[in-house]
């Protein structure tokens, strides 16, 4: 897959250059800023993708938190938000779960276009129409700090 790299023009402040390798072997260069953007109270981030993970619909909260424009997001792969800190095993588990027709829920650190990040509790379900999976619906909500700390200790500690 081809996802546009994050460039220095997109970020401000100190950043680290990282490379993400996707399941198909393709790579993306991203610039990572060590600054969290707080998840706003009361919001839900909602998106719908096709079977290949391309975003077909998203709400305003999705656009606002991603720092991309809606035009940049529609048609892009959902993994445009992938943060290099999240192990690929997490995404492998996510995809195998939803492709099997089941619901997946977990904590995710998302990467914004400006290199900063935000944490979410994500729930993803297959969208089934006439008995066939035609895509996936994702809803993210504000997570518990305690649960994020537990996740970081379990999955992200070096």
């Amino acid at each position: 897959m081809v996802i546009k790299d994050i460039t220095a023009a997109d970020v401000s402040g100190d950043y680290e250059t990282r490379e993400i390798t996707f399941h198909d072997g393709s790579t993306r260069t991203v610039l990572v800023v060590d600054e969290e953007v707080p998840y706003p109270d009361g919001r839900l981030i909602v998106s719908v993708t096709d079977l290949e993970g391309r975003i077909t619909e998203c709400n305003k909260s999705f656009v606002d938190m991603s720092a991309y424009s809606r035009e940049e997001l529609i048609g892009a792969q959902q993994c445009i938000l992938r943060h290099p800190d999240i192990p690929s095993e997490i995404y492998a588990d996510l995809w195998s779960t939803i492709k099997a027709g089941n619901k997946w829920q977990g904590y995710i650190k998302n990467l914004r276009k400006d290199g900063r990040y935000y944490w979410v509790l994500a729930t993803i379900i297959p969208t089934v129409r006439d008995g066939e999976i035609v895509g996936y619906a994702s809803v993210r909500r504000k997570p518990s700090r305690k649960k994020i700390e537990e996740f970081v200790a379990q999955h992200l500690s070096a």
Binding site: K103, Q105, I125, T127, S138
Partner: peptide, 13 residues
């Protein structure tokens, strides 16, 4: 309607 059903399913877990 289907989207509403999907949405409520994601919110009730």
């Amino acid at each position: 309607v289907e989207f509403m059903i999907d949405l409520m399913e994601t919110l009730t877990t």
